[in-house]
């Protein structure tokens, strides 16, 4: 029997959709390939070790050490996570375990709204509020312990610092961590909680011994996802972090994360040889870090979903 018009059309539509869905994947691969090719000049002329672990950043002299930027990225991200993770996990637990469904329906959209605020707005808020706060209140307050805890040393008189970047970032990634951790908690069957409560356990004992162990992989994935967002966040961080190419020693030092380096310099100073390739290498490094974390969290989430069924 010859194929009818309908089934022919169906086949073509199917092919069309396949192409559309393949495009984004292809695009990601193309970007990766382009970055790789464009970074070749510097990757070929400098040993990888001096690129990754060299701390001298003197483009005019042809010295490209990425360590200040890599460590700046890590510093800001770690500070953001230290601030955000405990608060976010407790928020997700509170929402999921203690509040009524009505409150959840009310609060959840508000939290999701936080994720929709443009990053430059967070940046302005950081410059206007957080930077002065760090400069005038936090630095004098915490700096006193600088002699005991070196990460609290204050040598930077401005508020533009790792801490300011970390605080702004923490607020920015919070909605994502809360949202995913909450969803993970919601996948846990009510019967499990009842099993524990039926034995006369308190709500907190139930959360601690039944809910959290069951949700731990998923909660971990939510943190990793928040972390990968923090790594790539550019605008807001760049506005408050100081942008000094040095390896930070204290949370009050200025830093220069990779995304800020790329955003600040691309298109400028292109007359310097290899500068273009250096920025491409920075992009490649950043993409690599985010990619690894995302794969990590996807695998963890998949593990959770499989266990659920």
């Amino acid at each position: 029997m010859p194929a009818s018009h309908r089934s022919k059309l169906d086949r073509w539509v199917q092919r069309g959709f396949w192409i559309f869905s393949a495009l984004p994947t292809l695009l990601a691969l193309l970007i990766l390939a382009a970055l790789w090719i464009k970074s070749q000049p510097i990757l070929l002329s400098h040993p990888l070790k001096t690129l990754l672990f060299g701390s001298a950043w003197k483009p005019q002299k042809g010295e490209f050490g990425f360590l200040p930027f890599i460590s700046g990225t890590i510093w800001v991200t770690v500070v953001a996570l230290v601030i955000a993770v405990p608060i976010c996990i407790l928020t997700a637990l509170y929402l999921s375990e203690y509040t009524s469904a009505r409150t959840q329906r009310l609060i959840k959209p508000l939290l999701d709204l936080l994720a929709a605020i443009p990053s430059v707005v967070y940046g302005v808020w950081g410059v206007l509020i957080i930077v002065p706060w760090v400069q005038n209140s936090l630095a004098p307050l915490l700096g006193r312990w600088g002699s005991i805890l070196p990460i609290l040393t204050t040598t930077n008189p401005t508020g533009y610092s790792v801490l300011a970047g970390g605080i702004v970032l923490a607020v920015m990634i919070a909605p994502f961590i809360v949202s995913i951790a909450y969803e993970v908690l919601q996948t846990i069957p009510f019967g499990l909680r009842q099993a524990s409560l039926a034995l006369g356990a308190t709500r907190w004992q139930t959360i601690k011994y039944a809910v959290i162990p069951k949700a731990s992989t998923g909660i971990f994935a939510s943190i990793v996802l928040g972390c990968s967002r923090a790594l790539g966040e550019t605008m807001a961080v760049l506005m408050v972090v100081g942008n000094v190419p040095q390896i930070p020693r204290s949370i009050f030092d200025a830093a220069y994360p990779l995304p800020a380096l790329i955003a600040n310099n691309y298109g400028e100073m292109m007359s310097i040889p290899l500068y273009d390739a250096a920025l491409m290498t920075a992009s490649l490094l950043l993409l690599g870090m985010v990619l690894v974390l995302n794969i990590f969290s996807i695998l963890a989430l998949r593990h959770v979903l499989r266990e659920k069924t």
Binding site: G191, L192, A195, A198, Y209
Partner: peptide, 20 residues
């Protein structure tokens, strides 16, 4: 309430072993 629940063991429709 925990004392009340401690006095009665519950068998649910389907078992929910705790994650341990």
């Amino acid at each position: 309430v925990t004392e009340v629940r401690k006095k009665s063991g519950l068998l649910a429709q389907r078992p929910y072993p705790l994650p341990m």
